Simulated scan of single mutants.
Amino acid sequence: MSRSSATAVTAESRRLLKQLISRSRRTSGVQFPPAFLRDDDGFDPPLSRILRGGQGGDVRLKLYLTMTLLAARQPHEIRNIPARTWAQVLGLPEPEVNGARRIGDALDFLAGMTLVRVAGGQGRPRDVLLRSPSGNGRTYSWRDGRYISMPLGFWANEWIYRLTGSSVALLLVLRDMRSNRQPTDPPWLTTDQKRRYGLSEATWTRATKELTDNGLLSVRRRPQGKDFDHRRLRNTYWVHTERLDDAASPPATPPQE
């Protein structure tokens, strides 16, 4: 979709987003288990499945991340937020009608993936209960040994309006890749390692450019292999998480999803 910062993000969108952040009472990022991002058994993980479908994927991913931001405490439930309000929070055009419909479609999709349980409707707001981010339908929990977090600045500094869904997904992937590495030893991926995230080459290429253009990513070409081995040049990736602590400036030309 067109970047909402150019078309539909309003002062009301920003006010409601800040209200949700305050209502969540979070002081740090939102945590996700590795199983949300990657699958080592050859299946597509929830993150990549949410993203598929062009404009719909953008809405689904940002809605799911923002619902997870809000439902920070037991029982991880959200009540009485109308679809039009979610549409305003995400900066969707025509929030009263088309925007609300897109939110409804996104909720149905996420429920079909067993990431949420949805109840109600027919003239009243639908209640949402978060389920496991791994998509197995179990009780919500992000605790799985280690975890990957989306910094609070993603919402507080309005990066959610600046970035496309593809770039948001890759940002989470890069957070997973970075782990405990240092800038002097940035991570790189083999083809098989890359596949476990389930993102297409087109998504990877497009999102890499967008994150780089926004100062969130540095990509370098470095040789891999020991001194006497055949050495291949591979891309290394270093995500600048600290950049999310700065306000997201509006793009000169909004990118297309």
Rank of each mutant, 00 (worst) to 15 (best):
S2L: 14
R3T: 15
T7F: 12
A11Q: 11
Q19L: 13
L20P: 01
I21L: 13
R26S: 04
P34C: 05
A35L: 11
R38S: 11
D41Q: 12
P45N: 08
P45G: 04
P45W: 02
L47H: 04
S48A: 15
R49C: 09
R49I: 09
G54H: 02
Q55N: 08
T66A: 04
M67R: 11
A72M: 08
I78G: 03
I81Q: 09
P82M: 10
A83E: 11
V89A: 07
G91V: 14
G91S: 13
L92Q: 05
E94C: 05
E94I: 02
I103M: 11
M113Q: 14
V116C: 08
V118T: 12
G120F: 09
P125H: 03
R126S: 10
R131P: 01
S134C: 14
G137H: 03
M150L: 15
L152D: 05
L152I: 15
E158I: 01
Y161L: 05
S167Q: 06
A169V: 07
A169L: 09
L172M: 15
L174S: 00
L174A: 08
T184Q: 14
S200Q: 05
A207T: 06
T208L: 01
T208K: 06
K209R: 15
L211Q: 04
N214Q: 08
G215K: 05
L216T: 10
V219T: 15
G225Q: 12
D229S: 13
H230M: 05
T236L: 09
R243A: 13
A247D: 12
P251M: 08
Q256L: 14
E257L: 00
